[in-house]
């Protein structure tokens, strides 16, 4: 890429808005996923019996089942949230930057 184009994009305020908004959001979601997963794993490692409690009085199903399936669903949900915001905000900014500099 030519140096002057790089310079033009880097001095465009929308580029900075895009980079800062997207990286903040992406790292926030990544950390959230790590937190959810490691909370799950560390509960199992340190006090697994919490997850072995019955879901309601007399139930065979345990708390662990909705929790485990919940972690799976949260992974899907987080990717959905990212897509939603990327479509609405990041792609719009990218388009505007391209229109302004190209």
């Amino acid at each position: 890429m030519q140096q002057d184009l790089v310079h033009a994009i880097k001095s465009n305020p929308k580029y900075h808005e895009l980079v800062s908004k997207r990286s903040k959001f992406a790292w926030l979601l990544a950390i959230l996923m790590l937190l959810i997963y490691y909370t799950f794993i560390l509960i199992i490692a340190f006090s697994g019996q919490i997850l072995s409690r019955p879901l309601w009085d007399g139930a065979v199903a345990t708390v662990g089942i909705p929790v485990g399936i919940g972690v799976i669903l949260s992974a899907f949900l987080l990717t959905g949230i990212y897509i939603h915001r990327a479509n609405a905000v990041f792609d719009k900014l990218t388009r505007e930057i391209k229109e302004e500099v190209l």
Binding site: L29, A30, I36, Y37, T62, G68, I69, A75
Partner: peptide, 21 residues
């Protein structure tokens, strides 16, 4: 039983990280 689910969860949660980063 339940232990199998722990493996599945570990295999899946890498995907959102791939998407975000």
């Amino acid at each position: 039983g339940y232990d199998g689910l722990i493996y599945s969860v570990g295999f899946l949660v890498g995907w959102p990280i791939i998407m975000f980063l």
